[in-house]
């Protein structure tokens, strides 16, 4: 598949994202949302940002997206310094951002239109991604008539169709009910695996984090720092699509217990 966003070239030995010594101060320095945070993302990995509310995980994600700027520090995408937002970092929001004035198909096309993808290729990719998110029958439907899960699938398809290097997700399934959420998680794992993407997903749902992620970065709050960086080695380097299978794996219960303990420590 050819790369749509042209201003980056994936290089294997350079991390897709490198955050160095990121500090974010508010109110003239009296409040530190993030305090000297550094990490690297690994290629084709799903990283979950977990932590109590107010721990700066959302601020960190928005800084990566370029929607907010750090007070100090440096951000590199494939070794290149980035300032401001760009299509190399696609974002999926908790609020439904499928545009209500465009049909599902036009929504998916929209991102590629911005990148000036030729019409023929655009159409082909649009249909392709609509199929992947199981919305081909709803191509001409406005978001108003779609359910929350379907709207979120439109947003997912729109972001994937732009072919960003990194996909950022801010509690993407937070507004969905339990069953739809579960379906979306499975769909997301499937698509990320297929499209080979580097992903950062915020969640405060510990079970969701363990299910989706290859690695969990746990933030502590006030000031926001990385409390723990946990590779999910118990999965044996693969992604488990069936939740039942995951629950039966040795190491799952222990990890979940640890994360809950860490969360309790933070909210004390």
């Amino acid at each position: 598949m050819n790369i749509v966003a042209k201003d980056f070239t994936p290089v294997t030995n350079v991390p897709p994202l490198k955050a160095s010594r990121i500090t974010k101060e508010y109110l003239g320095g009296s409040f530190k949302a993030l305090d000297d945070v550094s990490f690297e993302l690994h290629n084709n990995q799903i990283t979950a940002f977990v932590g109590p509310s107010g721990c700066g995980k959302t601020t960190m994600l928005r800084i990566i997206a370029g929607l907010e700027y750090p007070t100090r520090g440096r951000l590199e995408v494939f070794g290149k310094n980035v300032q401001g937002p760009g299509p190399d970092r696609g974002m999926i929001f908790q609020a439904y951002t499928s545009f209500p004035w465009l049909t599902a198909m036009q929504n998916v096309e929209y991102g590629m239109k911005i990148l000036k993808v030729p019409a023929a290729e655009r159409r082909e990719r649009t249909m392709n991604f609509l199929k992947l998110v199981h919305l081909e029958k709803f191509a001409d439907t406005y978001p108003r008539s779609l359910s929350g899960g379907m709207k979120q699938r439109v947003a997912l398809a729109r972001t994937l169709a732009q072919n960003p290097a990194i996909i950022l997700m801010d509690e993407p399934f937070g507004a969905l009910d339990a069953q739809v959420r579960w379906e979306m998680q499975e769909l997301m794992i499937e698509l990320i695996e297929r499209e080979k993407k580097t992903v950062v997903a915020i969640t405060h749902d510990i079970e969701e984090a363990i299910y989706l992620a290859d690695r969990i970065i746990f933030f502590s709050r006030q000031p926001g720092r990385i409390k723990a960086d946990i590779p999910l080695t118990f999965k044996g380097g693969r992604r488990i699509k069936q939740k039942e299978e995951l629950l039966e794996m040795p190491g799952y219960a222990e990890l979940e217990r640890q994360l809950f303990a860490m969360m309790r420590e933070e909210i004390k």
């Binding site: 974002m91 929001f93 951002t97 732009q162």
Partner: peptide, 14 residues
């Protein structure tokens, strides 16, 4: 208007 509409546009490179 929902502020995420504008932010979505920004992250799409508009």
């Amino acid at each position: 208007i929902q502020k995420e509409f504008v932010e979505a546009g920004l992250t799409m490179g508009a």
